[in-house]
């Protein structure tokens, strides 16, 4: 008896394993976007103590009046939820945007996938699912537009931003002006050059070198860079921690931060780099109506007000 049973058992186990494996494969395929979201959304939460994080609606949303009877997991690209691939510099504003939009359009919730625009672009090009794309870089938006990822006519300018230098309040390196960034021993954090804020910072340094400061200042400043971070908030974090003496970030970051978080060095507008944020609806969106509503909301005075509150300028 034993002999006849063992192979059957084996076969059973094998088939169950196969089934599990195949189902896991399918699950892995369909949920690849959701897992990235699940990890991305919590990062948004601790940055600003926003009222109630209604962005991920199913977890806890007692404030919303019109909660549907069947609580679907909001982070899957279902009909009630839109996935917005969002430039990381909007991390602070994203909670407020999500909850305000949900108030205006109670049937739709928003999930933000926040990362450097360059990373989001690569993800979209490799098949990531998103309904909207908020880009901090005109050139990446244009590339994706030329590659045919966006609904025709949906690409709109959303906001603008300038580069600013932030210093930790202690300012142990005693940096008083932009010229001081070139002092030996100063530690500077910057975004890597593919990050839109990094591109802009490099342009600003080049402009300053050609204008008020010198090429040797630019060289010394660049050699003081100790890290090229992969997103704009990562630079702000290194400054806030006090681990570096200065960081190149967006003006919005300095404006939105609680007072006392940073000291700032402004860069003259003539030498600065105007970064234009754009918003678009993706062709692959299964919920283009809701995505278009979200874009309208962002371009409306309500959306613009939130952006202004977080330090972004109008386009």
């Amino acid at each position: 008896m034993k002999e006849t049973f063992t192979p059957t058992k084996l076969a059973l186990i094998g088939m169950i394993c196969c089934l599990l494996f195949v189902s896991a494969l399918f699950a892995g395929c369909t949920q690849s976007t959701t897992t990235s979201l699940a990890t991305a959304t919590p990062t948004a939460a601790p940055v600003t103590p926003a009222p109630t994080p209604v962005v991920v609606a199913t977890t806890a949303a007692p404030t919303t009046v019109a909660t549907t009877a069947t609580p679907k997991p909001s982070f899957t690209p279902s009909e009630n939820n839109i996935v917005v691939y969002t430039a990381a510099s909007l991390t602070g504003a994203s909670n407020t945007i999500g909850s305000s939009f949900n108030k205006a359009y109670p049937s739709t919730t928003v999930s933000f996938d926040l990362d450097g625009t360059q990373a989001l672009k690569t993800q979209i090009e490799n098949g990531a699912y998103a309904d909207n794309f908020i880009s901090a870089s005109n050139s990446y938006t244009n590339t994706l537009n030329n590659e045919g990822y966006f609904v025709a006519g949906s690409v709109q300018p959303l906001a603008t931003n300038y580069i600013i230098v932030i210093l930790p309040p202690a300012n142990t390196a005693n940096i008083q002006s932009l010229a001081d960034l070139a002092k030996p021993g100063v530690k500077i954090a910057m975004e890597q050059k593919a990050v839109p804020a990094g591109t802009a910072s490099l342009a600003v340094i080049a402009n300053l070198a050609n204008d008020t400061l010198s090429q040797s200042w630019a060289n010394a400043t660049m050699s003081n860079v100790v890290t090229y971070e992969t997103s704009e908030p990562a630079v702000a974090a290194k400054v806030a921690l006090g681990e570096v003496d200065a960081g190149f970030v967006y003006q919005s970051t300095a404006t939105a931060a609680p007072s006392g978080t940073y000291t700032t060095l402004t860069i003259p507008q003539k030498d600065n780099y105007l970064q234009t944020y754009t918003i678009a609806v993706l062709k692959g969106s299964k919920n283009q109506a809701a995505a278009a509503e979200f874009e309208q909301f962002m371009l409306s005075s309500a959306g613009q007000q939130i952006l202004a509150q977080y330090g972004f300028s109008a386009p």
């Binding site: 360059q118 990373a119 672009k121 690569t122 890597q192 100790v226 890290t227 090229y228 971070e229």
Partner: peptide, 26 residues
């Protein structure tokens, strides 16, 4: 590494970091 040592080519940018930065579009 990216948390503690940062990402500076030649100083702290090891191979996995270079892969990450490269795939981000550089």
């Amino acid at each position: 590494t990216i948390m503690f040592a940062g990402n500076l080519p030649g100083v702290t940018q090891t191979m996995p970091l270079a892969v990450y930065v490269g795939m981000e579009g550089t």
